[in-house]
């Protein structure tokens, strides 16, 4: 496969991985040292900003 097509394929694959599929609610605790400072209820742990905005609109 030519290099540019490989890159395109990789980008497309990552786009599908990060921005498609069922979103499961998650949670996270932000800690500094051994102290838990914040508990967050999350719908997405990792996504790009546009994806987060779209999810918020659904």
């Amino acid at each position: 496969m030519p290099e540019d097509l490989e890159e395109l394929s990789l980008l497309e694959t990552l786009d599908h991985l990060l921005d498609r599929g069922v979103v499961i609610a998650g949670d996270a605790v932000i800690s500094i040292g051994d102290v838990d400072l914040l508990y967050l209820g999350l719908n997405i742990v990792l996504a790009n900003v546009d994806a987060i905005i779209r999810t918020g609109r659904k």
């Binding site: 990060l18 498609r20 069922v22 979103v23 499961i24 998650g26 997405i44 742990v45 990792l46 996504a47």
Partner: peptide, 9 residues
């Protein structure tokens, strides 16, 4: 299968 969005750990 049903894809679950990356980030669910």
């Amino acid at each position: 299968f049903i894809a679950i969005r990356y980030g669910f750990v």
